[in-house]
Nucleic acid binder design. Structure first.
Lengths: 210, 210, 210, 210
DNA sequence: TATGAATGAGTGTTCATTCAT
DNA sequence: CATGAATGAACACTCATTCAT
């Protein structure tokens, strides 16, 4: 009668709420990173988290809510690491390089982080329902963080005040280029970071006399 | 410059078939850029092209085929402009800057081009069905083009042979950063390009004595 | 009259179990009345009763069982009041009017009663699973009660024996019309009841000579 | 290969648009009448209409739209018949009786009409999304129609001006009682109508001397 | 006595695609 | 060349119910 094959109803033995929720977040981060918001189906999340689709709604009100939760989670993690890296250096160049370095490190440890960051920009543009709710919060904080770093460069004399915006634009471009372009090719990413380091020190390009 | 007013040579105006196909391609480029592959429905394309969904299948075998056609089309256009820009300069730095400049120009003229390029990388990753068919083709050609440019830098002495890969990685990172990050903010894109120019000339960052 | 204030005899106040069950019945009556059988979810009942969905199953075997319990409860209450009203009058007309009056009164005191009665007919038709179990019971008892009242009218000479069925059909139609049509508009209900009274006394309509 | 069993894709041979739409409306009217708005599933409608669920959306934007369409359709039919019946009589009593008669007739011809009318009141109350859109329109027109009939009674002297509201409330109560209570029991409905006729002529109840 | 994690079947709706006309 | 009626598989989400704790 009660075969050991068929899954039973009711609360499964030894199931932990916080555990399941974290499992959902983890598989969601991965799937959102790989397949995007639309491409990530509840069925897929459920399968990978070892539950059924209905159970997801015990933890999150909607797919959108899952996405936002993942975004918050990723944002927090990355921001903490960035801040730590930046705090350990004292010139603008050193801070910038430290950040690139830690970005590379995180990408090695858990590629889904970087990939999610790359994907989130696209998905936010495509699904306005997401950006409306999330909005300013995370994005703005990033900008403020980078701006402070550049301002530090002005204080140390590394950056001319007049070029504040230029440097900021460059920093952003490089960071995004690194996450989007080569987040799944660690060798290329390593090369790009080294290149930027060399470039900042003036040892990458030797302008032709021309 | 390229006015759409003047009748195109001696061809009978608006041969229906070719016209419709081109209209489909144009609206598809826009929609794929804005909403991605999944987010673009046949119904939407049909509506914007002024036909019905069924009619689409007279011109393309499937949605996938439309995507590939748009990609080829965009690739060709961008490549031609890039090559022209590159040919008009004779140092590596000048070529690189010319390419950035033309990328900015194209973005001003038709934002859907840059946006599609930004989106295509994500969509290819998400829908393996697309990358399998398209595959090497376009992507590799880009790489060859950029590699040739760097090799020219080696020839002129601007780039040390040992740093070939680094420079290549940097170029790619910047190009991708520019399309993805700031393709819809022309001011920021302008700033980023200027920053790179200044950096290459050594006038952006002034390493602290420290 | 029936104050809810005075402590009910010597029983210990608020024995938890019975209290909870009654709370469930009360919120169920309201919800079934407003939203019907399908529209009433266990979650809603649980929320309004201040418990969880699982707890409901300690008191009732199923949603259906709750519905049946509410129906029995409502039936009992209404029947008691109807009987009291009827007993206090001695002609058919007076009895009928007394019943209409008490129906109006009950509707003022607790609209969920009348509304449930209006809804139950529809829900029974829609969900055969409900009527099967409940079946004859309550419905038949009502009919017997009304039939007795009409028979009394025959005894008093108010109703001709040959018109027994006609009068019964009329009484039923009016009662149902009153619960369904205007149960949430006390003014209209009042008017309808007054109209029936006048009609029975022959003072509402004055047939045209024609 | 192409077995004659499996349904083919594409447009089925000999399929007529207007025909299918009407088939959907017909089965929808029946199902909404029997099982209500919630209880009517798209799958059921599709099965009964001989199509698939997806095809429904070729004809209606949503389930709600189907409901509204059925309501409009039913409203129109009933209103036309009511008006014809009323126009053929010249006293208030005759008009009222004519209306009751035609209601009974329509119920014999197509029970789904009356049942839908009985159900619609409940479903509108339960699903505010429906009443919001439909709103005043139909309901108000009914009231205006009945009011005009009563006003005619005032003109003929059948109804005292002071009792206008009472008579109106009575008419409404009876009409609703007839649709809701006994729409599926033609014998009972016949009896109820005859009873009302007799009552209006003063031959149903003979007040006791008391 | 009650909680709340989980199930499995179901809902309305969308979509790429097919094909008779 | 084009229409538009229709399919079938998918999707996000809801619900009554179960049961370990």
């Amino acid at each position: 009668m009660t075969s050991s094959k068929q899954p039973r109803l009711g609360r499964p033995p030894a199931s932990n709420s916080a555990d399941t929720q974290e499992r959902i977040l983890a598989v969601a981060r991965q799937s959102f990173a790989e397949r995007g918001y639309e491409g990530t189906t509840n069925r897929l999340l459920a399968e990978r988290a070892g539950i059924t689709t209905g159970a997801i709604y015990h933890y999150f009100d909607s797919k959108r809510e899952i996405y936002l939760a993942v975004d918050r989670d990723v944002g927090r993690r990355v921001f903490r690491r960035f801040r730590e890296a930046e705090a350990g250096a004292d010139t603008f160049v050193a801070k910038f390089e430290a950040i690139l370095e830690v970005a590379h490190q995180m990408n090695s440890e858990d590629p889904s982080l970087a990939r999610f960051l790359g994907a989130v920009r696209v998905d936010l543009q495509r699904h306005t329902e997401l950006s409306e709710v999330m909005g300013v919060d995370g994005r703005l904080r990033d900008n403020a963080f980078l701006a402070a770093m550049v301002d530090h460069g002005i204080a140390t004399g590394e950056v001319a005040p007049a070029q504040r915006e230029l440097v900021l634009a460059f920093v952003r471009t490089v960071l995004i280029g690194l996450t989007d372009a080569v987040s799944d090719d660690l060798v290329a990413q390593r090369a790009a970071i080294d290149a930027i380091g060399a470039l900042l020190e003036g040892s990458l390009i030797h302008p032709a006399a021309n």
